[in-house]
Design a binder for these strands. Structure first.
Lengths: 187, 187
DNA sequence: GATTTCATGTAAGACGTTACATGATTCA
DNA sequence: TGAATCATGTAACGTCTTACATGAAATC
């Protein structure tokens, strides 16, 4: 039974907010998506793993209008494992990032200027959407007061906002560059 | 013979700067590392793939002081394949990113404040180093004049700089938050 | 009647990393 | 003498995604 960083992501989510896989997926989408996206199927895999390890316990909860769900919560052993992992060596788990739009910009000399401009616009719009969503999260958490564990959730949302703003500024910068040179050569 | 995005990253690198695997690795480190990191072994794998596909041709070059190297350059078929890929549907190849430090911040309630502060400092220093490296790249490219294919390389370096600056600002923000609340509880 | 929400999982495979393996030359 | 540079690859493994599979209830 091996555990990866994703195991601890899910364990962290469960710690914050116990619930079914379905619930946790929704929570993950609002919280960790912009710095540690996780697929639905991996989520369920990790929940099973957590239960096998004794780090979370699942309980079947009957509902009358909806299917029975399995609600997970962290066990004391799970909390201990999480803290030990966090305390352990910074684990040079390299910051992975792949940005297809930046790649396309890099390969710009091979693209039509209009097509690149389209991609940049789409990218900017995505970043604007993300910024808006995360701003809502921050506002919502601010309404709860300046203390408590959601301070940290707020901090990670701020990270996404700052990155999104950098992305928006960058797309505008590149667009300005494209506009400045009006030669539509593809080669 | 399947080709992934990484295949086209390497093909793009070869297009820009023909050379040996070793040369290309060095170039990748200065150019695409911050938005599409690639391991050395994957590089060699992709170069073999490119040759098998007929998208790049490798030629053995003898050297007297150093081992013989295999120099690659893109073929016309490779250029065509690259352009077709770039022209094809924006390929919802999701922007992958995993940031361990942001994750640790999210799990802040389970960490000692000092340990988190250490990680944030290390992260900020890494971002500062990256910003400095990329600033050098930009300055270097600016010295070559405002036109030519390196405009795009400059643009992608600018991306890294803006992201690094956002990261630096964020770590300072979080550090200020930690400093504001002097309760060293770990639970 | 169609779509969305709720709910959970498996199986196959793509993708990418680390560790292993080798060895000459140059420079301090 | 030791480290760094130059140079290339394989093998094993870990990680994660997509597609597949199912099905009831609620809402439009």
């Amino acid at each position: 039974m091996t555990s990866s960083a994703a195991t601890f992501v899910v364990l962290g989510l469960v710690t914050r907010r116990p619930g079914s896989g379905y619930d946790i997926a929704a929570f993950a989408d609002r919280s960790v998506r912009h710095f540690w996206p996780i697929s639905r199927s991996q989520l369920y895999t990790e929940l099973s793993r957590l239960e096998e390890l004794g780090w979370a316990s699942g309980t079947a909860v009957l509902q009358d209008r909806y299917p029975t769900k399995r609600v997970y919560e962290a066990t004391p052993a799970g909390l201990a494992a999480l803290r030990q992992w966090l305390d352990s060596a910074p684990r040079q788990h390299r910051q992975r990032m792949q940005d297809p739009v930046v790649l396309r910009t890099f390969l710009g000399p091979h693209m039509s200027r209009d097509r690149l401009a389209d991609q940049l616009r789409a990218h900017r719009e995505q970043a604007e959407t993300l910024r808006a969503e995360l701003s809502d999260v921050v506002d919502h958490l601010d309404a709860k007061g300046p203390v408590g564990p959601h301070r940290f959730g707020r901090a990670t949302a701020r990270y996404g906002i700052l990155q999104a703003e950098a992305t928006i500024a960058w797309t505008q910068e590149v667009q300005a560059m494209l506009d400045a040179e009006p030669d539509p050569e593809t080669g």
